[in-house]
Design a binder for these strands. Structure first.
Lengths: 305, 305
DNA sequence: AGTATTGATTTGTCCAGGACAAACGAGGTG
DNA sequence: CACCTCGTTTGTCCTGGACAAATCAATACT
């Protein structure tokens, strides 16, 4: 049951490593070393796919491929908690123990318990505080657990799905929009993560902005069309930490060129941490800054050069 | 503002056509014919990207690439409504005029009006009938409009996003699960469409089954792990009509091998239209059949040869 | 001591052109 | 009309080379 093998296309989809990368690694480092079928095509055993996933995860953490690919399985396992003690401490300080406890039902695959806990917190904190002080740190904590390999992909999927539902339900309960500005919320083709967008949408909707949620993975040209059709004032994009950071500036500039000047372009999410705003492109680093940017916009300070 | 150009990687992401396909088309048919930058790398002008999107859409409709790629823009435009008169008639018969009217707010980008209409229908019909007689035909109708080029990508995204919210809200209002069987609902890595899964989840939840929604785009190995961790009885996958049909049987067989025998495997959605069930893999062609399969399962007829 | 600069190495992505099997369609036969 | 056969179409994979951007390491400078 575990002896099935995967074609290079499947491995690309399941690991996120492109065919080119898989082949060039094989050429350079000797791993992965897939079998070949009758036609000479690569057939990756399941255990090699698993190892590739681990390597990908460690790379997202900052490790170098050159080291990881020549490491033994033991060395790989030992590498996992790369985080410095100092940073671990600051994390412990920043994240309430309560948040930590919220993860438990997810790790035990108990959807009902999770939802119940969260709904209680929502009722107690109110929507804005719930988003900023519960959902945001919890999502960050889940990301950390993922980096450390302490959580499975399907557990993260379950968390995302359940939390999406909570937020959407909360948004649906708000009075309908019609206000200003009109904000399109979406992400580019490669970016599938949606929780950040939902948090922003919640905050903006609470402030009476008109939110136009287009889901994730929109082609650039379509984003431009949508901005036109909806007479949007702002296009807000989200980039998760997993998004290849070097591509973001180019993408934003390209989209900036496709949009009319009167439309503001905001980019947020953990993926833009290291960027800063340029004329016509506003980089937003955290949730409070979203509200500040909204206030700025309403104050009329959004005129471009 | 429209003179920006796209790298081959961007075109791949935005059109869904692989780099290999883009290059081999250029070699064989002379289209696309991108410019080259200083390093000899392809730079696709925006209008060629647009044309590629049209071609992709027509191909999904059954047209052959060999014809499309040598056609003039005029010929391409004339090709759009390829549907036979007979089939058009049967569509008109099947789809209530009322359904047709529901699309209007979407085409006018009026989210509020759409949600209001739909919530009225939900209240009038009840959840099960709403899913089967409103959401399902409406989604089908949207797909048709997309095939015919009468709807923009971002309009389809808006429809999907708003309808997702309606269904999730409805599901959240149901009494919590805890029943049997335990059903994992998800889709494979390439498949991002989620509406079908939500419709199925709604119906199953109404019947008291315990639904475990993992969202879309799960790697096969993770689906297997999730089935184990959640002690699932059934894994239900959804394939949209846009999913490359030839890959589905292989994927299902591979997943079947990864799952324990006691776990049933269901596959549904427009993508499986031409397939039929095999031992251990149940193909489900429409929503009523989902309920039949559930009844079968509960009746104990799910023992595998 | 800390910071800027320069050079070497790593790494992802692109390219060309060849090959081939699976899917498709046309044409013939029962 | 159904079934088979054969040529054509089409997507995907292959090899191996190239190169620029990112990163690292070592030196020189304030």
């Amino acid at each position: 049951m575990n002896n099935s093998s995967f074609s290079i296309a499947m491995v690309e989809r399941d690991t996120g490593l492109s065919k080119d990368v898989l082949r060039v690694w094989e050429r350079r480092y000797g791993f992965p070393c897939p079998l070949r079928d009758a036609h000479g095509e690569r057939q990756y055993p399941a255990d090699q796919v698993e190892r590739l996933r681990t390597i990908k995860r460690l790379m997202d953490q900052g490790h170098r491929p050159g080291k990881l690919l020549v490491a033994s399985p033991d060395e790989l396992a030992a590498l996992t908690p790369k985080r410095s003690p100092k940073r671990t401490q600051s994390i412990k300080a920043a994240v309430d123990e309560t948040i930590e406890a919220l993860i438990e039902p997810i790790r035990q695959h108990d959807a009902g318990a999770y939802l119940q806990q969260m709904q209680q917190r929502l009722a107690r904190q109110g929507l804005q505080a719930f988003v900023q002080d519960t959902v945001a740190p919890l999502t960050w904590r889940i990301g950390l657990a993922w980096e450390e390999g302490r959580i499975e992909v399907f557990e993260e999927h379950l968390y995302t799905e359940l939390t999406k539902r909570l937020l959407r339900q909360a948004i649906a309960g708000l009075p309908p929009g019609g206000g200003t500005p009109r904000v399109i919320l979406t992400s580019v083709s490669e970016e599938a993560h949606v929780l950040g967008l939902l948090m922003v949408e919640t905050l903006l909707a609470l402030e009476g902005a008109e939110c136009i949620p287009l889901g994730t993975q929109m082609p650039l040209l379509e984003i431009a069309r949508a901005a036109d059709a909806h007479a949007a004032d702002i296009v807000a994009l989200s980039f998760s930490v997993a998004f290849p950071a070097r591509r973001i500036p180019g993408l934003l500039e390209q989209l900036r060129r496709l949009l009319p000047d009167r439309v503001a372009l905001w980019a947020g999410g953990s993926g833009v941490r290291k960027l800063s705003s340029t004329p016509g492109i506003e980089i937003i680093h955290d949730l409070p800054q979203t509200l500040a940017a909204l206030a700025d916009f309403r104050g009329g300070r959004h005129n471009r050069g």
